[in-house]
Amino acid sequence: MTSTWNHPEPDPLRNWSSEASQADSLPELANLYRQHQPAEPSERAWQTCQMGIRKRLALTGPARSRLSWLAGWFLTATAACVAAILLARFQLFVASVDNEQAAIPAIVSRSATTDEDEPFAVAGAAEIHIIAMNPQDADRIVTGLDYLGSFELASQQDIEVVGVQADPTGGTWPRLDRRSALPLVVTARLDEETP
């Protein structure tokens, strides 16, 4: 039997548009990654790894002798003393430099934290009681943790604001026409996705 080895040119622009489109949703994107996980190592590789763990734990495991604990405490105490001495000397040095340079304005450096690490504001369901809402803000409702499981999102096209009525206790209520039985969880428009 003659066969040829399949060795096509690697093409970074292969037609994976359907896979790429899964990145529109975080759960689908995560699922895409789960479906393309690396092959498991061989059993022999696992055994080698396990033996390595056993060997090293035999040396540093939890059943260490009392003597080694005492040695550890002694080393820690010694290191702490050395660190305290060095810190004291450093602070004396800094104080003397500060006195000399008191007239020089300080340079304030910004934190290294990037804007991308800014946490989203999150409140629990018990902390929120919506008493009124501007219909214009209907597309800005964001779900809380309780809804992070499997749920469907309604888009703006699924909901029509048919009117706004006054609430006897104050404020107004939007009257919404949900064109299907979708839950009232509204996703932001794509062009407004960045908070």
Partner: peptide, 24 residues
Amino acid sequence: IGTVMSRLHYARQKLRAYLSERTV
């Protein structure tokens, strides 16, 4: 949890952009 959400949000945006650029 807010930071987890924000990291995942920006991670998905970057991954989507990268994958979209490299697929047809």
